[in-house]
Write a protein that binds this DNA or RNA. Structure first.
Lengths: 195, 195
DNA sequence: TCTGTTGTCTAGCGCTGCTAGGATAGCGTC
DNA sequence: GACGCTATCCTAGCAGCGCTAGACAACAGA
């Protein structure tokens, strides 16, 4: 059995190598530079090897995205743990979220712009997705007050996502990042007037 | 001079035909179906004709996006005109924005996801961009109170953009659109606690 | 040592955006 | 009315893309 085990170990190692290399290549040269040929060259194997590990290029991007959701969940979890009050937790999570996106632009693109086939908010969702959204839900729920927690989470998440993506394309004024984040968190924590 | 005028007229007509066809093709079959070959076939000219009108495929997408910004400005303007109070105007604009994005998904993608070279918020920005953002700024400024109008506008816009894009990818619960929009507008109109 | 399986590579398909160079149509001029 | 020129358009092709069929080599078991 030892031989087969070694092979499986090597396969797993190469699997991780493909994902790691794709991510690095995307982060340094952008996703348009991530072609199956260049990826194969980087891992020092031929193209078809990629297809023995993944169904196609999309599956590789998805694998990178899953890594991203895992890391995002960790980042949000730490932010939440570092805060004393629900309001502080929301502010910390918001900052952690945008910092994460800014630090890993290609990864963020894989998670939200390139990948379309990851099922969200469903029983069969991959664990990292559930974890990441679960973290968001936890931190938002404790700050939601009498508003619907899930709706509140979706709105907060959307706002953060919008800030990240619009800022990325140069659509928002550079250097005003903190002001926007502060205003957003302030509005989310405010108590709406009862009409 | 009449001959040259006719030719210029024909050129202008064909220019519009290309943009119109690209938009239709994208809206019915998605942007991945908009290839230079298929586009050329649809307009009943050969491929190189496209390149006598546009520098490349990106330029065609950009032209479609500009059309979108023009229409968005009109939609927002009408929403603002239909409202009596600043709060109503903000709510109407938010609804108009998301309705516009939902009704023209491919157009919205061209404006915000595919096009990256349109300069925003700069003196040399194309007029439609200035008009669209100007409408947003107007409606947000009157609802901003003592908050910085431009920052408030950027945050509101980001939130709407986030709602649209996340909902598109199935990332948000279907059927909760109105609840999210209502909650967002309520939060934006709320007065934050003074810390 | 031979055989069958497993794994990898070479070569190639149909597609993409884009372009060089030849053919053609229609103008202004004689 | 015939000619030459210019502007326009098309055919054909390039390099690169994602992906795959089939040849080939390496290796486990008999």
């Amino acid at each position: 059995m030892s031989i087969q085990e070694r092979r499986e170990r090597e396969r797993a190692h190469r699997h991780r190598l493909i994902v790691k290399t794709a991510r690095e290549l995307a982060e340094t040269e952008g996703w348009e530079a991530v072609t199956t040929r260049r990826l194969a060259e980087r891992i020092e194997y031929s193209q078809p090897v990629l297809y023995s590990h993944f169904a196609g290029k999309d599956a590789i991007v998805t694998a990178v995205a899953l890594e991203g959701f895992e890391e995002l969940a960790g980042v949000l979890s730490r932010a939440r743990a570092s805060a004393a009050t629900p309001a502080e937790a929301l502010a910390a999570a918001a900052r952690a979220y945008t910092d994460f996106a800014d630090a890993n632009p290609a990864l963020y693109d894989a998670m939200f712009t390139l990948t379309t086939d990851l099922p969200f908010g469903r029983p069969d969702s991959p664990a990292p997705l559930k974890a990441a959204f679960g973290e968001l839900l936890t931190v938002c729920a404790s700050a939601a007050g009498d508003r619907d927690a899930e709706t509140f989470t979706e709105v907060a998440w959307s706002a953060l996502h919008g800030l990240v993506t619009l800022a990325r394309g140069g659509r928002l004024r550079a250097g005003q990042r903190d002001q926007r984040l502060g205003l957003l968190v302030g509005q989310l924590l405010a108590t709406p007037d009862r009409p």
